[in-house]
Structure formats: structure tokens, C-alpha cells
Simulated scan of single mutants.
Amino acid sequence: MGAASASDSEKEGEPMSKKILITGASSGFGRGAAIELARRGHEVVAAAETWPQVRSLRADAASAGVKLEVIKLNLLDGIDIAHATGYDPDVLVLNAGAMESGSIIDIPMERVRESFEINVFGHMKLAQGIVPKMVARKSGKVVWTSSMGGILVIPFVGVYCATKHAIEGIAGAMKAELAPYGVKVATVNPGVFGTGFNDTGAESHVQWYDADRAVVPMPDFGGALADQSDPQDMIDAMVEIIPAEVHPYRTMRPVGTIAVARQWQETEWTQDA
């Protein structure tokens, strides 16, 4: 995308129009951010996992009165990933994700591998296809959707947290490795928001879980899911930082979660085994 002359809004400090590719845009944070970024004049390529989700997202964009290019991207599908790497965005937002519940001792390894394939390896493959273009032109940004679970650990969604801890390690290494080439890297770290993602993740074990055979019985997640935050808080933060030239490396919402995450990190140094 060629650079345009600065508009009055750009001169006042607002980011110029960017080409942005967002994975996992069929619902939740991805959907909200994609539609709002398009409304603000950015050229957004929004990726959804299935064809029905592609059509639904196109309809959502039309209803919102915004122009949105929607593509199919299943991160377990090499053909889909190869197609997506044909794009050359200014900002790559690695937002898609899967959550599987279950104790570390009981969860089937198939579910563990699939979680890493979607949350980590598929996104790495996508980045390996797109980021070299950013390096070649010495500009661009990669934004990883991590989680509060990338900083602390939530029992019985430990595999999900493990994928997000992996993302934290990958994003940190990428930031240092790509900085000399003008490519920025950042994370967004949502807390517990009512997008439906946490609810389906908490339910996901029912297809394999057997209470009579479980080594570690599953708890009732009802209390933890009862008071989830409004997703708009996280969407608003993402919409601000995705196209911005200057912003913090990590963006965590709700703001109150930051203190919880920092306390967890301190506890890891002081607690007994």
C-alpha cells in the first residue's frame, strides 16, 4: 500500500491509514477491532476460520456500513495459511485462539497438540510468511493476542495458559530480533471478558471428561464466569494500539488485572513449592 500525503488528522497525531490483517476476526475482540478499524479508514483484511463465519462477518461489515475484506483462515490448514501469506500488511494481528479445559494430568494429548497448533505454531507459520516483507521494507508491526494467562496461570485451563506463555516468549524474542529492521512487536493481554470464548473453553472438556476416571476432578467454573467484563474495553484498547506508531509493548485490560498479574509474578519468587 503506497504512502499517502498526511491529512489534517494525521498532522494532529492520528495514525495514517494502515493495511491490517487480523486473524480470528469472526467474533469477540477480533470482530470488534476489525469493524472499528475499518470504520476509521484502515484497510482491514479480516480472517475467519470457516466459510459460514466468512459470510457472517461480511454481513456484519455490511450492516455496520464498513468495507472489510474477509478471508478464510483455518490455522490448521496449510493451504489457508499459504493464501494468507500472500498479503503484505503494515500490521499483522495474531488474534485467533482456542481454549481447552482440563487438568494437566487428565487432558488428552490430542487437545494439547491442537491448542499449540492453533495458538502458537499456525501463527508462527503465518508470521514467517509475512514478516520477511516487513523486514525487506524496514517497517511493520506484529501484534500478538496473548492473555492474562500468558503472565499468570489459571488452574484447569493450564494448557491454554501454556500456549500463551509460549506466545510471550516468542513475542519477546521477535521484538529484540526485529527491532534493528524497523519492525515492531507488541502484545495485548485480555483478562476475563464476556466474549463467549471463556464460556466455551470452560465447557470444552465435556466430550472427553469422565468424572469416575479423572485423576483430578474438574471444578465448577460457574463462579469464575459469572462476572466477566465488557469486551468493549479491550476492543477500544486494541483499536488504539494496532495502528499507532508509539504505544506500550504490553496492553492489558481491564486495568485492574495489571495489579493481579504483577502480584502473581512477585508470588512466584516468594511462594514455597
Rank of each mutant, 00 (worst) to 15 (best):
F121R: 06
S56N: 14
Q271L: 11
A224N: 02
V188G: 03
M99K: 10
T270Y: 13
T50K: 13
D77F: 00
D227C: 03
I107C: 00
V185I: 12
V70F: 02
M109W: 14
P15H: 08
Q207A: 07
E177K: 13
I130K: 11
V45T: 03
V120H: 01
D230Y: 10
R111L: 12
A4G: 08
P248G: 00
W264F: 15
T163W: 00
R137S: 05
I170Y: 00
Q263R: 10
S115D: 06
K72W: 01
G78N: 13
I71Y: 07
A186S: 15
S27M: 05
Y181F: 15
T267M: 11
V70S: 01
E36V: 05
A273H: 14
V93A: 05
R113N: 10
A173M: 11
E36A: 08
I35P: 04
A34Y: 00
Y209P: 05
A59N: 10
E203C: 05
G172Q: 15
K72M: 06
K18N: 06
E10N: 04
T251A: 03
D77R: 01
K18D: 07
E69V: 11
L225Y: 04
G223C: 10
I107S: 01
L92S: 01
I79C: 04
I258E: 10
V239A: 13
P89Q: 00
E117F: 09
E268Y: 10
